[in-house]
Design a protein around this nucleic acid. Structure first.
Lengths: 195, 195
DNA sequence: TCTTATATAGAACGTACGTTCTAATGTCAA
DNA sequence: TTGACATTAGAACGTACGTTCTATATAAGA
C-alpha cells in the first residue's frame, strides 16, 4: 500500500519542477526529486514515463513534458460528472498563454476602466488582450482614440464609413472623422476573482 | 544601418525558440539561431544579454529567460500613450498561466453554458477556471449541484444556512437541503474573441 | 518454499555541453 | 592613416550530462 514512487507522483514532481524552474531537471537533480540514489533508477522511471506518453524526447534528445501534463484540463461536460481524481472526462488540456495569446510579440494587456462594454460582458477591472496592427473586421471590439481618449468600442462598417458603438446604450454612437486611430483589436478578455 | 545581430533580435530569437521548444537552446543551436559560426560568438552575445538582465543563469548555471522577456506586457494606462514600440509605459509583464491559475494541480477548465451568471459578466461560451477543494467564502461564485445538475451560482451565507443565487433575476433562489455538493470555486474566467 | 518480475544501487563510459583562449577581421573616430 | 574598440572565428579543454552495464534487494505468484 505504501508506494512513494509511482508514475503519477513522478509526473507531478516533474511538472512542479518545470513550473518553478522553467526547464526540465537533470538526471542528477531527479535523484533528489524522486528520492533515489542512482541515476540509473532515474533512467528506469523516465523510460516508463516515456512509454506512457507523459514524456517525450525531442529531436536533440532532450526531455520534454508532452502537452498532457502541462496546462490544465478542460472538462468535457459537467453533466458527465466532475473530474474528481482528474484523468476522467477530460476533453483537452490547454495552456492559458497559448490559448489566449496568438501573437505574443504584438499583443499587450490593458486593464478595463469604465462600463462602456458592459453589454459584451467586459466589466471594470477585467484585463483585455489587445493585438496591435491587426485590421479590424466588422463587429470586432477595438481600442480606438475618440476625442483624444482611448476607449473600447464595437467596430462597425456602415456603407462607406465606420461607426464606433459602445456595448452600453448610455454611450452615444461615434462617427469618426478622418484618420480613425485604432490602437488594436481585442482578441480576448480575462477576469480574476480569487487569488 | 544594417545590423542583423543586435540584442533585441537575439532576445526575440531566444523567446521564439523557448516558446516553440519549451526549453532554451544549446550554444550549438544558437549558432544557427544567431547565424554565427562559432560558439564563442554565442557566448559573447549571451554575456551581453545577461548584463542587460534579459537572461539569467540559475543556480545550476542553466540559461533562463528572466520574466521580462516572457509573458506579455501590461500597459500602465492608455492615456499615457500606447506601447508603439513596446518598452515604454509598461507596468508589468505577466504570464497568463501564472496569473490566472494559482493551483494548477487542483484546477480545471469548464465551458459555460446558459446565462445564469450573465449579471456577473460571465456569458455562454466563456471558460471558467474552477478550483477544487476550496471552501467558498460568502459572495464567491461556486460550481454546485442543484437537482442533479451542475450550475454556477453565487454562494451566500444566510444566518445558519446557505443560499445559492444566480446572477440573473430569471432564476430562482436556491435553498439547498442538507449535503450541498460543491464542485469547486470559480477563480477566474476567460473569453476569446479572435483566433 | 522456489521462481519470476520489479525496483534499486553503484560504477564506468562516451559524448556534447559551456567555457576560455588566441587571433583575425570589421567599424568608427580622431 | 592610425589607433581603439567591437565583433567574429576557430580550436582546445574540463566537466557534467545521459546512457548502459552488472549486481543486489524487494515484492508477487505458483
Amino acid at each position: 500500500m505504501k508506494k512513494t514512487r509511482d508514475i503519477k507522483s513522478i509526473e507531478q514532481a516533474l511538472v512542479a519542477f518545470y513550473r518553478s524552474s522553467k526547464r526540465m531537471p537533470t538526471y542528477t537533480e531527479m535523484m533528489d526529486l524522486f528520492e533515489v540514489r542512482s541515476k540509473s533508477v532515474v533512467s528506469y522511471w523516465i523510460d516508463k514515463l516515456i512509454e506512457k506518453g507523459i514524456l517525450e524526447k525531442d529531436t536533440q534528445g532532450f526531455l520534454k513534458l508532452s502537452g498532457i501534463s502541462f496546462g490544465i484540463p478542460l472538462v468535457g461536460n459537467v453533466a458527465a460528472g466532475l473530474p474528481v481524481s482528474a484523468e476522467e472526462n477530460i476533453r483537452d488540456v490547454v495552456s492559458m498563454d497559448e490559448y489566449l495569446v496568438a501573437k505574443p510579440d504584438s499583443s499587450f494587456l490593458l486593464r478595463v476602466t469604465g462600463d462602456s462594454m458592459i453589454g459584451a460582458g467586459i466589466i471594470e477591472g477585467d484585463l483585455v488582450i489587445v493585438e496591435r496592427g491587426r485590421t479590424p473586421k466588422n463587429g470586432d471590439i477595438v481600442l480606438a482614440e475618440v476625442d483624444g481618449q482611448w476607449t473600447m468600442k464595437y467596430f462597425r462598417r456602415q456603407g462607406r464609413g465606420v461607426v464606433l458603438e459602445a456595448a452600453n446604450p448610455a454611450y452615444p454612437l461615434i462617427h469618426p472623422e478622418e484618420e480613425l486611430k485604432i490602437g488594436g483589436v481585442i482578441t480576448a478578455s480575462v477576469r480574476k476573482y480569487l487569488m
